[in-house]
Amino acid sequence: MRSDVNHVLEFPGGYTRSVGPVIGRFLSELRDGRLVGVRTAGGRVLVPPAEYDPDTGEDVTDEFVPVGPAGTVTTWSWVADPRPTHPLDRPFAWALIRLDGADTALLHVLDVGDHAEPPRFLKTGMRVRAKFRDDRVGGIRDIECFRPEVTSITDPSRLEYRLQGGRALDRFLSGIAEGRIIGHRCDVCGQVIVPMKGLCPRDGVPTSEEVELPHTGTVTTFAVNNLPDPRAPEVPFVSAYVLLDGAGLTMLALVAGLPADQVRMGMRVRAAWRPREEWTKSMSNIKWFEPIDEPDVPFDEIKDYL
């Protein structure tokens, strides 16, 4: 209330309204959690029900028919800044909703969730459903609001496992835990595979010759990520394929230490390790790769590793 208010017009306790048979039936059904309309002599179904046909003034019939609880939005408005008298204290929509089985529309609150702006899915024609209050008293606000009808679901899923990384991976991560990057050289093709798998995927032969690789390499290609992800650094961040010096294939890693728009194919990088005391037996010991002051590798030299 504004501080300069010097007069309030309010009937103490509120007006007591007798509602008559038709509104009374609607509100009683509503209290029981049901939505009904009333049929006019002309066959239309009025929701909310009136004692009369709005077009002709004739009495409606005594036939009440179930409608909803779903309906279609015929128009809507968006309240960005709710008034004290409004039913919600955060932004929301008003909507006219033609309930299934009805020929007229009911005006009510449409709650599409907490949004500062109208969400894109809010539009005329959208399907909505009534949400009833638990403590219903027989009033239009026994419907707490309408909510969008379900068009998609989220499906939480959690299963528990006890996994083994396999011996080769375990050996690789043991190296990482000590600050070393270890690969396997294939006896057939001579290429160094890092992280090693204990076999050469190309030649289909087991591998076992360990090779320790330097912590430097070359960015072959990369992506600038603008889509936020709770697990990732702030956007934009760069994910890159890094070809370690001496390796035969690239590793996917974060590249940081320079603006995203300055990352280049062929750029020379070095692994940035977390402080030793934070090391565990996981790849997270390497935060990311960062540039080193060396000339870029010509494209020709990396084109086969893309």
Binding site: R17, V19, G20, P21, Y52
Partner: peptide, 13 residues
Amino acid sequence: TRRPDASMAGLLR
């Protein structure tokens, strides 16, 4: 004193 059986519109009608 009271027409509890009638809405406002119902009373007029």
